[in-house]
Lab assay of single mutants.
Amino acid sequence: DNLVIALHSYEPSHDGDLGFEKGEQLRILEQSGEWWKAQSLTTGQEGFIPFNFVAKA
């Protein structure tokens, strides 16, 4: 599955970004460039995340 774990917390800075906490698990929905579309397994919310803040779970 496309699961990743957050290496750092991220505060959203643009509409459509997904904020998350360090250690949170996310499911990657789309990989494109440096911003990936993801869904939080904690909150169920979707949005874009910086790819370098996460690692394969």
Score class of each variant (00 low, 15 high):
Leu41Met: 11
Gly33Asp: 04
Gly44Trp: 07
Gln31Leu: 06
Ala57Met: 15
Gly23Met: 03
Pro50Thr: 08
Leu26Val: 02
Leu29Ile: 11
Thr43Met: 03
Tyr10Gln: 03
Ser32Gly: 11
Lys37Gly: 01
Ala57Asp: 10
Pro12Gly: 09
Glu21Ile: 13
Asp15Arg: 10
Gly47Lys: 01
Val54Tyr: 04
Ile28Asn: 00
Glu34Thr: 13
Val4Pro: 00
Glu24Phe: 04
Thr42Gly: 06
Pro50Met: 05
Pro12Arg: 07
Glu24Pro: 00
Lys37Ala: 04
Asp1Ser: 10
Leu18Gly: 01
Thr43Ala: 01
Gln31Met: 14
Tyr10Val: 06
Pro50Cys: 12
Gln45Gly: 07
Gln39Glu: 07
Ser9Val: 05
Phe48Ser: 05
Glu30Lys: 07
Glu30Ser: 12
Gln45Met: 11
Thr42Glu: 10
Glu21Leu: 12
Gln45Val: 08
Ile49Ala: 00
Pro50Lys: 06
Lys22Val: 09
Phe48Val: 07
Val4Ala: 08
Tyr10Gly: 01
Ile49Val: 08
Thr42Tyr: 09
Asp1Trp: 14
Ser40Asp: 01
Ile28Met: 03
Ser40Ala: 05
Glu30Arg: 07
Gly19Pro: 09
Ser40Arg: 10
Phe53Ile: 07
Gly16Ala: 07
Ala6Ile: 03
Pro12Asp: 03
Ser13Asp: 09
Ser13Cys: 15
Phe48Asp: 04
Val54Asn: 04
Ser32Met: 12
Leu7Tyr: 04
Phe48His: 06
Ala57Cys: 14
Phe20His: 00
Leu29Asn: 01
Phe20Pro: 00
Ala6His: 02
His8Trp: 14
Ser9Lys: 12
Gly19Arg: 12
Leu29Lys: 04
Pro12His: 05
Val54Ile: 07
Phe48Lys: 08
Leu41Phe: 05
Lys56His: 12
His14Tyr: 09
Gly47Met: 03
Asp17Phe: 15
Ala38Cys: 06
Pro12Val: 07
Gln31Gly: 08
Ala55Trp: 09
Arg27Glu: 03
Asp17Pro: 03
Asn2Glu: 09
Ser13Trp: 11
Asp15Met: 11
Ile28Ala: 00
Gly23Phe: 06
Ala57His: 11
Gly16Glu: 07
Gly44Ile: 02
Leu3His: 05
Leu18Val: 03
Gly16Leu: 08
Glu46Gly: 03
Lys37Pro: 00
Phe51Cys: 15
Leu29Gly: 01
Asp15Pro: 15
Leu3Ala: 03
Thr42Phe: 09
Leu3Thr: 07
Trp35Leu: 08
Leu26Ser: 00
Glu30Cys: 14
Thr42Ile: 13
Asn2Trp: 13
Leu29Thr: 06
His14Ser: 11
Gln25Lys: 14
